[in-house]
Design a protein around this nucleic acid. Sequence first.
DNA 1: GCAGGAGTCCACCGATCGGTGGACCCGAGA
DNA 2: TCTCGGGTCCACCGATCGGTGGACTCCTGC
Lengths: 208, 208
Amino acid sequence: MNEVIRVLVADDHAVVRAGIVALLAAEPGIEVIGEAVDGEHAVELALSLRPDLVVIDVRMPKLTGDVATARIRERAPEVRVLVLTTYESDASILSAIEAGASGYLLKAAPAEELIAGVRSVAAGEVALSPTIAAQLVARMREPAPAALTPRETEVLRLVADGLSNREIGERLFLGESTVKTHLLRTFEKLGVNDRTRAVTLAMQRGLI
Amino acid sequence: MNEVIRVLVADDHAVVRAGIVALLAAEPGIEVIGEAVDGEHAVELALSLRPDLVVIDVRMPKLTGDVATARIRERAPEVRVLVLTTYESDASILSAIEAGASGYLLKAAPAEELIAGVRSVAAGEVALSPTIAAQLVARMREPAPAALTPRETEVLRLVADGLSNREIGERLFLGESTVKTHLLRTFEKLGVNDRTRAVTLAMQRGLI
DNA sequence: GCAGGAGTCCACCGATCGGTGGACCCGAGA
DNA sequence: TCTCGGGTCCACCGATCGGTGGACTCCTGC
């Protein structure tokens, strides 16, 4: 690898963007060729600049990191994507990887880890933060990944808003019994037995 | 103001720290004299280095930003504090300002705003992000700031964990009726009428 | 010294929820 | 073709919750 690694940095937070750029630009063999401030912008620049890799934040305006990743990989498969997240427990970890991300690091990671991650991904390898790798393995071991159906998610979101089963039924043009069925199934998937815990768990996992 | 502004940067995220440092160090008249990786470290360095101001993240290991702010202001009142947050709706905004912070900016703020904020605070002024300023005003207008008592917070946290009133009573050595009393008062303060909505609201406001 | 708020406790009732055990339709994939 | 899973619906029951209206202790502040 004697070529310079050309990197596009995408993050809506100015300070974070500056941080990634500062860390990467200081490294020999790494060059930051562009900065994007939201998801759409990231996709545009990725397609026009064709960097070796994009360092992208999961949570961004306009397009979330995982959707942006999918768009980039779809139209420019040779561009690799390294996703950054603030939270260890983010539902988008899985979806970003499914979307074709080659790495997933925590923002809390030390600078060396980020730089090593960039080099690994540019070299065609995969880069995962240890905690995220452990989480992936854990999810694989669990038989049920607790993926909620669209309807279940919809119902749970209304529960989070404090609506009763009857009110949810009215809102969704469903019978109260149907709402309860969805909810019961949701409880089962999440391994809880009351609506409140279901909501907090779903929020923590980024499900709603 | 012909002197150089001496700044201490405290953030547990390496990339964010690097970003703030990069943005500030590039400015004439601003010098970064130290970096802290957690709350305790920030207090230590603030006391030993005596910077003109500390740029500090709200959420940090060991000591949260507001507590660290209070400690610094207590033992070194001449050191000003500028707090950074990721979230607009953070309960710690108020407590940080009460603790003596001179400014409160969003990490999503453009670089110029951060730099202007640093200069303002160093000059003895106050720096607030527009959205945060608006939020403060809104809170002032509301008669009840919905501050929960320690007991109410404790009960609500257990509710969030999915415990029933009876279970919470057992856990806290209280009667079930007492738990209900606390909850009812909590509902009133938050303006809701069911436990689930109370929990989601409290989570959104950073109360639990 | 006394008001007021936090914390504790009680009884009681109607409403809602959790849980069970069904049933039917329909579309996708084996 | 037929199975399987998502989505819809129903009845029924006991458990729990929301809400009311009290009452008693502390402790802090005016």
